[in-house]
């Protein structure tokens, strides 16, 4: 059962930052946080409800980047016209996350911070070379970072730096993930996943790069999304990539099976990408 907890409802990012510590944690949709609390895995003293902070749900283009507020729900990202125009691959993947309740309730920022290894969002954002912006109140104990505005510190991390392991990120307890930034323009891409239960067995994102190359990210199958860059798509050896990965065996598949379907889905994703690139 859900243990008792305090609730703070800040109306601004700076007010939220003042509340954050080891025992007082950010809360938005609760799709993963409340589950973990119900299971007794964590028992924070206070939840900092971010839903009253308007700027966390903004979508805008800024300095050649698509900026997505961390509090946007998966549904909101999937349906946003700017996302559809500039990063259709993300819109596509977001529309397939979890189930209708999770998409309505869960947020892009919450998804990344929870670092569920089978996240569709993390895989696609890795392929899009996205970064997250973390902000903390100035003068508190936190990681080193560049100075932010208005007495805050901030730093930007790409997915590889941000995601450290299953359910483990580099976000410090006093930091808030404020937004996700996708460099523009985004080239043609595909996301294919193999999913037989609640979460994918393997998710493969491939984004065109240069004349014949691509960035390939394989997620869900191992502990972290694994990224590969190729100058020439034709040279990709799906079996070899799958062989390099360390699949996490579970009820959806053994190591052997997961390696096999990873190779299958890499091949299928690259075939689909080739079709997309060659399409007029």
């Amino acid at each position: 059962m859900l243990p008792p907890f305090g609730l703070a409802r800040p109306r601004s990012v700076s007010a939220a930052l003042a509340e954050l510590d080891e025992d007082s944690v950010p809360y938005w949709g609760g799709t993963e946080l409340l589950l973990a609390m119900r299971m007794g895995l964590i028992r924070p003293r206070q939840l900092v409800d971010l839903k009253g902070i308007a700027e966390l749900t903004e979508v805008r283009i800024e300095d050649g980047e698509l900026v997505l507020g961390a509090g946007l729900s998966h549904d909101e990202v999937a349906r946003d016209p700017l996302v559809a125009e500039h990063a259709p691959l993300l819109a596509y993947a977001e529309a397939l996350v979890g189930n209708a309740r999770v998409r309505a309730q869960g947020t892009i920022g919450g998804n990344l911070c929870f670092a569920e290894p089978r996240s569709d969002v993390a895989t696609v954002l890795s392929a899009l070379s996205a970064e997250v912006r973390l902000v903390a109140a100035d003068g508190t104990d936190g990681a080193d970072g560049t100075d932010g505005a208005d007495g805050t510190r901030e730093r930007r991390l790409d997915m590889a730096a941000f995601l450290l392991g299953p359910y483990w990120t580099d976000r410090q307890p006093d930091e808030l993930l404020v937004d996700v930034r996708i460099p523009l323009p985004v080239t043609a891409g595909v996301y294919l996943k193999y999913q037989t239960v609640e979460r994918p067995t393997v998710g493969v994102a491939a984004v065109a790069r240069g004349a014949a190359g691509c960035r390939l990210v394989v997620g869900a199958v191992g502990e972290l999304p694994a990224g590969f860059d190729f100058e020439d798509v034709a040279s990709v050896d799906a079996e070899a990539i799958a062989g390099e990965l360390e699949p996490t065996p579970d009820l959806t598949g053994s190591i052997l099976y997961k390696r096999h379907v990873t190779a299958v889905f890499i091949r299928r994703a690259l075939a689909e990408l080739a079709e997309k690139v060659s399409a007029p």
Partner: peptide, 17 residues
């Protein structure tokens, strides 16, 4: 007959490795 079981069946692989 989960996907992995069917795949193992098709490929003559044992139930578990």
């Amino acid at each position: 007959l989960t996907p992995e079981r069917v795949w193992r069946l098709m490929n003559g692989l044992p139930e578990a490795d």
